[in-house]
Design a protein around this nucleic acid. Structure first.
Length: 431
RNA sequence: GUGGCCGUAGCUCAUCAGGUAGAGCACUGGAUUGUGACUCCGGAGGUGGCGGGUUCGAGACCCGUCGGCCACCCCA
């Protein structure tokens, strides 16, 4: 194929899908506004160093999934693989952290991975971050907010909330040692990937998909036993909050997150309807990240949701209207040169008086018949017709194209004086 | 990075022991010199992803490559 194609894993989103995306975006932004979150818009490119310092040097994302390149001045930059790092950077840089901050953002992220269902190289996330509040009621707020979002999107029955606490970094270190200890003594029973992770990232063995590894883990030490007191009480407090709010959840003691900066609360909303990519929204607390990136010690909690996955899930579960989309309410047709200029002017003034109607003016010529054909295809309820007769009598024909749009008009069309066009259309679209 | 399946018209897919392609939908013209949807008739549209090989001959077989899908890894 000699034609230039899009980069692998970077997809165009076509009009039939953008309407679904817009539905998601509008729902989310309204919801976040109602909770008092402010939108922040961040660059897509940051210094590579930012991601290395926040996500963690030895994570897969940093080791092999980043789109990095040298700028013309020799500086190494990276297309953001996630949003939190940039958000924290911006919050520090602009001095937003003196008071609690609730922020959200939306946009493309980039990871060099093999594309598959629900995963592409350029994907889109909506991220929400809350800074400056160390108590778990903040964690609860975020989780309740997401639950409300699923209800509004019609996804409440398709997702399940999993929560866990991974404790302080000291607790995690102690637990990691115990886990490595245990697994090392059973090394032969571990699958190949997990053996590798035993040295690189042992906590990730916990969510291995290998059945025998999972079986081995049944007898392994659990994170809960190693939690520091504060993490333990915070976690049970979180559970209380969720219970009080009537929000069902599952404690998944093997839930860990892939990014290094998390501590204490971690959570994930999962679904079984998207193939093997089961997480649609995930996040947790990151109380050390701000300081780690050079800011004043400031606690943080946040999450990100994958927009592709949410749209997919909504399509999958029938939560979206998939009927053919209608781009026009009214389609204007003109036969003859004189009629064309009359129609063009009339339609322009209609747009002044009826700004909420989508009026498509036929362009590109063609026979009268073919123009009407286009009118029908457009999905418009009515066609406006200007021909020789109409022009000479200063009228316009309003033709009803759909069942039930005729206001009891059996003939299917009526010719009205030009001045009455606006009123006629108002009546047609009154509902 | 690894593995499986797949790449034929704009879309969904056929065909055939290897003898250079067809349907439906969509598009378009007409039946109706100013009236859409239904119906009928006609038309356009493919160097069969790309490159190489086997063969008298390949869309069909082989190799490579690119792309797609799914899974592993990892993650939203």
């Amino acid at each position: 194929m000699s034609n230039i194609q899009a980069i692998r894993g970077m997809n165009d989103i076509l009009p039939e899908d953008t309407r679904h995306w817009r539905h998601l975006e509008q729902t989310v932004s309204r919801l976040l506004a109602s909770y008092g979150y402010g939108e922040i818009r961040l660059p897509v490119v940051e210094k590579t160093e930012l991601f290395k310092r926040s996500i963690g040097e030895v994570t897969d994302i940093v080791e092999k999934e980043m789109y990095s390149f040298d700028d013309r001045n020799g500086e190494n930059l990276t297309l953001r693989p996630e949003g939190t790092a940039g958000c924290v950077r911006a919050a520090i840089q602009h001095g937003l952290l003196g008071v609690p901050q609730r922020l959200w953002y939306m946009g493309p992220m980039f990871r060099y991975e093999r594309p598959q269902k629900g995963r592409q190289r350029q994907f889109h996330q909506i991220g929400v971050e809350a800074f400056g509040i160390a108590s778990v009621d903040m964690d609860a707020e975020l989780i309740l907010l997401t639950a409300r979002l699923w209800r509004q999107l019609g996804l409440a029955d398709s997702v399940e909330l999993q929560i866990n606490s991974i404790g302080s970094s000291a607790a995690r270190r102690a637990y990691r040692a115990a886990l490595v200890d245990y697994l090392t003594s059973h090394q032969d029973a571990l699958d190949e990937d997990s053996q590798r992770r035993l040295h690189s990232n042992p906590l990730r063995i916990l969510d291995s998909k290998s059945p025998q590894t999972q079986a081995l883990l049944d007898a392994a030490p659990t994170m809960a036993d190693y939690l520091d007191d504060e993490s333990r009480t915070d976690f049970s407090r979180l559970c209380e909050f969720l219970q009080a709010a009537g929000l069902p959840y599952v404690i998944n003691p093997r839930l860990v997150r892939g990014l290094d900066y998390y501590n204490k609360t971690v959570f994930e909303w999962v679904t079984d309807r998207l193939g093997s990519q089961n997480a649609v929204c995930a996040g947790g607390r990151y109380d050390n990240l701000v300081e780690q990136l050079g800011g004043k010690n400031t606690p943080g909690v946040g999450f990100a949701m994958g927009m592709e996955r949410l749209v997919l899930l909504m399509l999958e579960t029938g939560a979206l209207d998939q009927s053919g989309q209608v781009l026009a309410d009214v389609y204007a047709v003109a036969a003859g040169d004189r009629a064309q200029s009359t129609a063009l002017a009339a339609v322009e003034s209609l747009r002044d008086s009826l700004p909420d109607l989508a009026i498509v003016q036929h362009t590109g010529g063609g026979s009268f018949k073919s123009q009407l054909k286009k009118a029908d295809k457009s999905g418009a309820r009515v066609a406006l017709i200007w021909g020789e007769d109409e022009v000479s009598t200063q009228t316009v024909t309003v033709k009803h194209l759909r069942e039930g749009s005729g206001q009891g008009d059996r003939s299917g069309q009526q010719t009205v004086p030009g001045q009455q066009l606006e009123a006629t259309l108002r009546a047609v679209f009154a509902d």
